[in-house]
Design a protein around this nucleic acid. Structure first.
Lengths: 183, 207
DNA sequence: GCTTTAAAAAGTAAGTT
DNA sequence: AACTTACTTTAAAAAGC
């Protein structure tokens, strides 16, 4: 029916795996790990299956990004803890994982007139500068998310903490455009 | 009391000094871009409003001045691109764009995106094209916006493509390279836009 | 504010072939 | 002219400048 083809493209989460990390040791033991303290305080480590990227800090805190769904986030963080254990680094048993941001794409299946939408949604609520970026930026309060609206009818929803937030954001945009007869 | 009085004078001096600097900056940039007096005055008004609302905090005077000038050009329908403003400012185009969005929101300027039509007079004169070509270009752009061919596209690219087509239809052909240079876009962009316009508006281009 | 990560949207740009 | 690569925008966390 209302197929908006909502697809989660990226999930960002944070957690704490230990009280402290020796990033230099991890860099030496983990293949492909990058750590340049002057460049960035965190160690960068990429994994595949599921694909994801980690930012590991000396405080024991970790940022996981690039996962395609929330379940994968738990999987890759669990795998990461195991690898650390194999290297002789103790990790916290059941780390509290917090999803910080979800990026999703969707499709309204309709060609849109962004100028009309800019007026309809109110110039004070949107940002549309085609000279700099082809998408119209719409910040929503209800689910606190930001939706990028393109003339092709495709959308990008970001800023949400749950997949539901993203779906709500798409619904809000869809209904608003509908009520203004712009869809 | 005397100390407070002196402090006020000091603050006042600093404020006036900063305003004077900002206004001289606006004048310098406006002159470099050959902008009319009305635009400079509009930019000065925007800048003063920004000062009155304390929007300068944490921002450079040059950045706010450049953003005010960019906004003024749009308000006066004689737009300059962020790249053009950036060329006469010491502030990066990214910073100007960011500051523009900020003051635009805080001062509720409520400006619609620049219309490609507003670039036609300047681009045409830069190509030594007369009124007939301009009119034809504007006509093409009117049809283009009606057929949703401008949403999400860069205004300068669409304007350049329309002028390119108009110059051919009027027998005053300019090359894509020439149009691209005055419009500040690449030939590839003009090619993509003009093909789209020609096809959707059923215009036959005989090269 | 910046630095680093990932990912999508669509337009524009730049370098190769 | 095609391809490829890359940059524009959005959000969010991490530690430090």
């Amino acid at each position: 029916m209302t197929d908006y083809n909502i697809k989660i493209e990226n999930v960002v989460a944070s957690t704490k795996l230990a009280d402290e990390f020796d990033l230099t040791k991890i860099e030496a033991e983990f293949e492909g790990a990058e750590y340049n303290k002057q460049k960035f305080p965190g160690l960068v480590y990429r994994v595949s299956e599921p694909k994801a990227a980690f930012l590991v800090f000396t405080s024991g805190k970790v940022v996981c990004t690039g996962a395609k769904n929330v379940a994968d986030v738990h999987t890759v963080i669990s795998n990461m803890a195991k690898k650390l254990n194999e290297i002789g680094i103790k990790t916290i048993k059941e780390p509290e994982i917090t999803v910080q941001n979800i990026v999703a794409s969707a499709d309204l299946h309709a060609v849109l007139n962004l100028n009309a939408i800019a007026i309809g949604l109110g110039l004070e609520n949107i940002e549309y500068e085609p000279e700099q970026f082809p998408g119209l930026v719409y910040r929503i309060d209800k689910p606190k998310v930001v939706v990028l609206i393109f003339s092709s009818g495709k959308l990008v929803v970001t800023g949400g903490k749950t997949p539901e937030n993203c779906a709500e954001g798409v619904e809000v945009v869809k209904q608003q455009l509908d009520s203004m007869g712009l869809l | 009391r005397l100390r407070k009085w002196q402090r006020r004078i000091r603050v006042s001096n600093a404020t006036e000094r900063n305003l004077a600097f900002a206004l001289s900056e606006l004048d310098r940039m406006a002159s470099a871009l050959g902008l009319p007096r009305t635009v400079r005055e509009t930019a000065a008004v925007v800048y003063r409003k920004a000062v009155d609302k304390n929007l300068i905090r944490g921002r450079s005077i040059e950045g706010v001045a450049a953003a005010a000038l960019y906004a003024a050009c749009r308000q006066c329908s004689v737009p300059r691109t962020l790249d053009e403003i950036g060329e006469v400012s010491r502030v990066s185009r990214k910073e100007i764009g960011r500051t523009y969005r900020f003051i635009s929101r805080e001062l509720s300027l409520k400006l619609m995106p620049t219309s490609p039509i507003d670039y036609v007079p300047r681009f045409c004169s830069g190509l030594n094209l007369k009124g007939e070509v301009q009119s034809k270009g504007v006509e093409i752009l009117r049809q283009a916006s009606e057929k949703e061919l401008t949403s999400g596209r860069g205004p300068t690219g669409v304007a350049a493509a329309a002028i390119y087509i108009a110059s051919i239809l009027c027998g005053e052909r300019r090359t894509q390279r020439e149009v691209a240079d005055v419009a500040g876009v690449t030939e590839v962009t003009i090619r993509n836009r003009y093909k789209e316009l020609a096809e959707e508006l059923d215009i036959e281009i005989i090269l």
